[in-house]
Nucleic acid binder design. Sequence first.
DNA 1: GCTATTAGTGTACGCTATACACTGTACGGG
DNA 2: CCCGTACAGTGTATAGCGTACACTAATAGC
Lengths: 286, 286
Amino acid sequence: MAGRKKSELQTRSERAVKAAPDVLSHDVMMQASVRVDPELRRRSQLLWDDRAQSTRGPKASLTPDEVVQVAMPLADEEGLSAVTMSAVSARLGFTTMAIYRYFPSKEALLDAIVDAGLGLPPRPPRRRGDWRGELAQWARAKRTMLCARPWLAELPFVAAPHGPNWLRWLESVIDALSATGLDSADMGEVLSILDGYTRGASDTAISLARARARGSSAAQWAAEVGADLGRAIGDPRFPHFAALLTTPSNRPTRTMDESFEFGLSRVLDGIERYVDAAKAEHEASA
Amino acid sequence: MAGRKKSELQTRSERAVKAAPDVLSHDVMMQASVRVDPELRRRSQLLWDDRAQSTRGPKASLTPDEVVQVAMPLADEEGLSAVTMSAVSARLGFTTMAIYRYFPSKEALLDAIVDAGLGLPPRPPRRRGDWRGELAQWARAKRTMLCARPWLAELPFVAAPHGPNWLRWLESVIDALSATGLDSADMGEVLSILDGYTRGASDTAISLARARARGSSAAQWAAEVGADLGRAIGDPRFPHFAALLTTPSNRPTRTMDESFEFGLSRVLDGIERYVDAAKAEHEASA
DNA sequence: GCTATTAGTGTACGCTATACACTGTACGGG
DNA sequence: CCCGTACAGTGTATAGCGTACACTAATAGC
């Protein structure tokens, strides 16, 4: 902490990197004895520990959870940028600095808000074993959650500490994946495909919903996006895209939900093919 | 513009939404006559127009492009948060307010920086028609680009205007997709799967690279993430995840690149299956 | 040359996060 | 019992942000 000049808030994703992709091994994940950035460690701890061991002094009039429960509606109603320390504290009826008794920085508060915003993953069905159905259910639930809290998509996913709810979602999808019989490494990859698709598709839905709220109809949203995209028509640099815009589909138009389901099926197709192949290979060797 | 009180910067993704997914039809995209938020329209225009029709008055000592070309290294070197109006102007040797002669707001400048940061998509190969190979090449190029400019991932993808380079990437992937013979609606879905996977996988790679830059080894990154994730081990709420962490893989560990390739293959498998089915159906009906 | 237009400057404002010194409260040890 | 200590919440101050606005000075058309 000592000697740091710049605002701590800006450290969330400050340091840029030339990014040489490299080994991310399973084994290395298990080495726990390495020294870790103390600030990140602290933020992570705040998400997990119940810190209630103080005895002396006045009683706290709030809990960290109360602060989060007040801040979240603020984000829901007025967007993430409305979540300022003073706005949150005003809703609580305290001064701005009071919040710093519960969270050491806005960053830490946001971590908690995000994790609370994730909520709980869907309950597994009673009849287990249909991994494809369960993965689909998980993806639908996640998309619904992300669309319900669009401000989650405004935060850089990268480098945020992972709280209890984040881990619950992870546990949930791994639970479903366990029925595939895949190797643990493969499970990780499959998971990243499914999650990547789900988040991307949610972005699209959010983008539509947001424009809808801004103005009015889907038509207006289309006009806004189309204002960019429409430039492509007639521009010699974008012939295929222009063709895609102008060529009408010969089947009935899909709704957003149908689009999501369509893509989800393709994703699960790819996964299923690998699961089957892996199963066959496993049986052959046994 | 008149009467707006809040900082214009915060409007990028300000208005939150209850998000009822709905129709996103192809036809509605084509209705161009709808009224559009004038500010967004303005920002979009700035990305596309060459605005050089002034005649009277002193000559401009800069161009918008020069500003962007100075701002981008700033983001590369010191992260997105280092891109402040005063930092950019200082590098240019002008006062802060000078930039506002070229971009009406920081938002508009960021739009331009992002589009410049996207760069150009890969050139299509001479031998055309191998759509699977071309899609893979596109995804690899996009991942490389995203990893090289990790600050792109820090900006909310949602609702940003789409500039020329963004459209070039889109054109490029649609070009490759054209060889599939898919319906235009289907192409859109397939594209969203591939792009979602690519962006998600890039996030992971960035996260690793960033932690590497912050501290040192992959081991340290693993310790940071593991500090969160390691809590799961022994926690009764996360049995499957703990099992995944502790069960060693029986095959050699994948590198990040190998992981990406593996997932990419699964994604393309799913797409290929649909392409084949669609082709078969089309031939049957013809 | 006059004048309208425009590039860049200087100043000021409101907003942000948050450091720091303070006040008052309430428990635990004497 | 009461006093000292630890801690909750307040008040004030600061640095930095984006940007509105009034200004100066330079340019080109009439």
